[in-house]
């Protein structure tokens, strides 16, 4: 009788269950109607099964988003777990869609599902990639903009994981400020 190691048949469970959402900009519909839940997963193997099955971000049409959020959190400011939160935002220039977008987004996903932020991973709600003609954006959403320790730890680890040069900074903005901004930029609460 051959003994098979459990490694061979047991999937590797993640700390959290995650939902991947897709947003397609159809102006005839409401914002919420354009948002669709693609799938949920809670193992390493199922994460890859989903990731390998869908289009990479750089192939999406302008106006589309992918959002990965912990199960039970909707990818919008209004969700109870997001409304006091904010995001570490990275704005990419047009050239970066070809050179950096897909690897930055995959790295972001790996940070989330792998719980890369140590004891502060519980403060992470999700991440969003926006495909836009004027410049794509990737953001990690956290639960509480007031928690300096959690927010800055997450920002430092995230910047390091993306391999961004020291001189390039990313900023953290509260969703409340983003929602009420008057111009095109939102003030940063933190910068790393």
């Amino acid at each position: 009788l051959e003994i098979v190691s459990p490694e061979a048949y047991i999937k590797h469970p993640l700390q959290n269950s995650w939902s991947l959402w897709f947003f397609k900009n159809d102006k005839s519909k409401t914002w919420q109607a354009n948002l669709r839940l693609i799938s949920k997963f809670d193992t390493v193997e199922d994460f890859w099964a989903l990731y390998n099955h869908i289009q990479v971000s750089s192939n999406l049409m302008s106006g589309c988003d992918y959002s990965l959020f912990k199960d039970g959190i909707e990818p919008m400011w209004e969700d109870e777990r997001n409304k006091r939160g904010g995001r570490w935002l990275m704005t990419l220039n047009k050239q970066m869609r070809r050179s950096d977008l897909d690897r930055f987004w995959l790295e972001t996903l790996l940070c989330l599902v792998g719980e890369a932020f140590d004891d502060y991973s519980d403060h992470v709600c999700g991440a969003v990639v926006n495909i836009r003609t004027k410049g794509d954006k990737i953001a990690v959403w956290t639960a509480d903009y007031d928690n300096r320790e959690a927010v800055t730890h997450i920002g430092r680890v995230y910047k390091e994981r993306l391999g961004l040069p020291t001189k390039m900074t990313i900023g953290y903005q509260s969703h409340a400020d983003t929602a009420t901004k008057s111009g095109s930029t939102t003030k940063n609460k933190f910068v790393v």
């Binding site: 061979a8 048949y9 993640l14 700390q15 390493v44 193997e45 099964a49 792998g114 890369a116």
Partner: peptide
């Protein structure tokens, strides 16, 4: 403890089919 997986560990599963 938390189930943390580093990037190399996660990446080595990308093209490894689950047996069942």
């Amino acid at each position: 403890g938390k189930r943390q997986y580093n990037r190399d560990f996660l990446l080595c599963f990308q093209f490894k089919p689950a047996c069942i």
